[in-house]
Simulated assay, not measured.
Amino acid sequence: MAARIPIAVAALVRDGHVLLGHRHPSRRWYPDCWDLVGGHVEPREPPHRTVTRECLEELGVRVHDPVPIPMTVSDATLDVHAFLVTRWTGEPVNAAPDEHDDLRWFRPSELAALRLAHPASLFSILSAVRVED
């Protein structure tokens, strides 16, 4: 069995809403669906640093104190490290338009109707939003 690919993602939560990025339709993996912002963990990079780096690269924000949260995904090739982020400096913008063609804040009640990259993660995302509600 091949080694699982380490990924770190951030659930930015503000005022009971979670920020999701719409993956560009030209993306090789999980195109044209909504997902948490994040990316590949580099060799010898701790996942919390990955999430900090990815949020700066993709959203233009500096996150503070990312908190690990459990995240369920059905893709057995991925080793997902998820973080709840409730504090950051700057206002999130789409700083990586080649990766995401849209960014949007969603209420928990809107998430089930979305085409998510990892539908199994819905409960994890909802739990993260409720923690801050």
Rank of each mutant, 00 (worst) to 15 (best):
R87K: 13
D32P: 09
A3V: 10
L59V: 02
M71A: 11
R104E: 10
S26A: 15
G16W: 07
L20V: 04
L111P: 02
P25M: 10
L84W: 13
P6D: 08
T50M: 05
F123M: 07
T89Y: 03
M1A: 15
H100P: 02
Y30V: 12
W105A: 02
E58S: 04
P46L: 10
V9M: 10
H22W: 04
A10R: 02
M71G: 00
L36K: 04
I5R: 15
G16P: 02
P119L: 04
G21I: 00
V93A: 12
W29T: 11
E132V: 13
V67C: 03
D15F: 10
V63H: 02
M71S: 02
C55F: 03
H24D: 11
H22N: 06
V63L: 08
L116C: 07
V131N: 11
L114I: 04
V93G: 11
V41S: 04
S74E: 15
R14C: 08
H40R: 14
D79V: 05
I7N: 01
R44D: 13
R14G: 00
V85H: 01
R49Y: 06
T52G: 02
F83K: 04
I69P: 03
T77H: 15
P66D: 01
A96S: 15
N94S: 08
H100G: 02
L12Y: 03
T86Q: 14
E42T: 05
L116E: 05
L19T: 00
V131H: 12
A113V: 06
A95L: 05
A3Q: 15
V37C: 07
T52R: 01
D98H: 14
H48M: 10
A3S: 14
